[in-house]
Design a binder for these strands. Structure first.
Length: 299
DNA sequence: CCCTGTCAAGTCACG
DNA sequence: CGTGACTTGACAGGG
């Protein structure tokens, strides 16, 4: 079990998700920003290793406009050495990596144009992980997508489109249950046809489920991960009673987290804290988990 | 320098 | 049919 947080670190004076406006696009600008973002990513990873945080989600903003037609620049070659250096560090320290394309990435849209743009976006994500020479335990997590008024058809389209994906994408893709449309059961149905592993979002599962307990959900999702996929990934967050539905909590409820670890103690997984204060809560989680026999410390 | 409207992309709920 | 939420900050242009 490794513990982590997504995309940004609030303690460091360094932002790895800087971007700029499409209107001000230029190659010089792109190079400047990507250079900054890669340096900062490396700095965050070093911070994480120093704090026993060995699970991290790399921001989709690492290379702004990478999948946009405006981008003709060969950033893969230009930053090859830097990606190698970071990849080396990740492999040496055995850091688990995920990426999560944003809500515009939908492979089951009836609109072929939406699918085509999403495909380009997924290829960009796969290139980032490939450039770092990470194995297929580094994952790209995606929701099944829209319902478009007909869930069965939409699931079928997802499966068809998945089967069309190039290998560099499909070998890394995992699906995640969401809190409005596609539950764990829906994901299991898709997984049974496609063998896609299921990333469990424990909070979404709490909001929308088919009666499975958290422990049962962990067990079901866990069984969809093959040897080459690594162990189950979990996105964890906790909603205090008064917050708006679906909103992530601001800070860690250590009791709730400890309880979650306890009820899932017969399963191993890597767990990402989707909590607004990011690494601060992750450090509390590490503190709470350090005596757990599943917990993996930095070398 | 400071203020603030706006930002690549999609879907869905709501009025 | 149009707008805001999702997530949120910060870019960038105007004063």
């Amino acid at each position: 079990m490794k513990i982590g947080y997504p995309c940004i670190n609030l303690s460091l004076d360094c932002k790895g998700d800087r971007t700029f406006r499409l209107k001000s696009y230029s190659e010089e600008r792109l190079v400047e920003i990507v250079d900054n973002n890669l340096n900062c990513l490396f700095e965050i990873l070093r911070f994480n290793v120093a704090h026993n945080l060995l699970f991290f989600r790399i921001t989709s903003d690492l290379v702004p406009f990478a999948s946009h037609p405006i981008c003709k620049f060969d950033w893969q070659s230009h930053f090859h050495n830097k990606f190698q250096e970071i990849g080396n560090y990740i492999r040496t320290n055995d850091i688990r990596i995920s990426m999560h394309p944003d809500q515009f990435t939908l492979i089951n849209s009836p609109d072929k144009g939406v699918f085509e743009r999403s495909l380009q976006e997924l290829i960009y994500h796969a290139h980032v992980l490939d450039l770092m020479e990470l194995n297929t335990s580094a994952k790209i997590q995606l929701h099944i997508g829209g319902v478009y008024k007909d869930k069965i058809t939409s699931i079928n389209i997802f499966v068809e489109r998945f089967n069309e994906l190039p290998d560099l994408v499909s070998k890394r893709l995992v699906i995640e249950n969401d809190d409005r449309s596609y539950t764990l059961q829906d994901c299991l149905e898709v997984s049974s046809i496609t063998d896609i592993p299921i990333l469990l979002d424990s909070f979404h599962h709490e909001v929308k489920n088919s009666g499975e307990s958290q422990a049962e959900a962990v067990s079901l999702a866990s069984s969809t991960w093959r040897q080459e996929d690594g162990i189950l990934m979990i996105d964890y967050s906790y909603q205090p009673g008064d917050g708006r539905r679906g909103a992530h909590s601001y800070t860690m409820n250590v009791d709730h987290f400890t309880q979650f670890l306890d009820i899932t103690k017969s399963y191993d997984f890597d767990i990402m804290l989707e909590i607004k204060d990011k690494e601060k809560s992750s450090l509390k989680a590490v503190e709470a988990a350090k005596d757990d026999k599943r917990f993996v410390m930095a070398i």
